[in-house]
Amino acid sequence: MSEATASHEGITGLVDDWSADKQAYHVPWGKAMMWIFLVSDTFIFSCFLVGYLNVRMTTTEPWPPQSEIFALSFGGDPIPLILIAIMTFILITSSGTMALAVNYGYRKDKVRTFWLICATAAFGASFVGMQAFEWTKLIVDEGVRPWGNPFGAPQFGSVFFMVTGFHGLHVSAGVIYLLWVAFRVKRGYYDNKGFEIVEIAGLYWHFVDLVWVFIFAFFYLL
């Protein structure tokens, strides 16, 4: 550690932190890599959402009434957005179980960690299942297609399938990743290496949830 980098505060201190000996911050490389990847992924989703807002402005036909299209009835009157509400709730719950898994991971409680990750993955899988259900309903019952729909602007279907599809792929990939981590936790693969991997997987999972909140807000509420 060179002397000049140790003592400063304020801006100089910040610069020193970043230019410090050997590494910036005490972060394992896997975690640093995941963070940078997630920022890059944020750019992808931002571009998708900006693209969506843009075509929503340029399209010449009226935007379809989302709350009616996404309504679901359980025997009685259709309840607007009910399915999406459930999906969002499930995904946010899964973030909770994931956070617990990270916690137990650092305490080396392998059994609880394993089951909590599995629960997270199960929530994720059920989210994807509901999404498949929603897609089927839109495609089969309502006649929405990527290139057109009976309600108005064709871009509605295009953006919907593209953005939710891309997010759904993220969730599916996350489920596989989580299961893989879970089984390695159980097999004791990380006993010596440390359980940072659980936190890294968790970062990814929370990110996917966060993106969903934005998609939810931009797509279903706006």
């Binding site: 060179s2 230019s19 000996d21 050997k22 590494q23 394992p28 490389w29």
Partner: peptide, 9 residues
């Protein structure tokens, strides 16, 4: 993260 000892940015 993988610079050797003494190699600051």
């Amino acid at each position: 993260q993988y610079r050797c000892r003494g190699l600051t940015m």
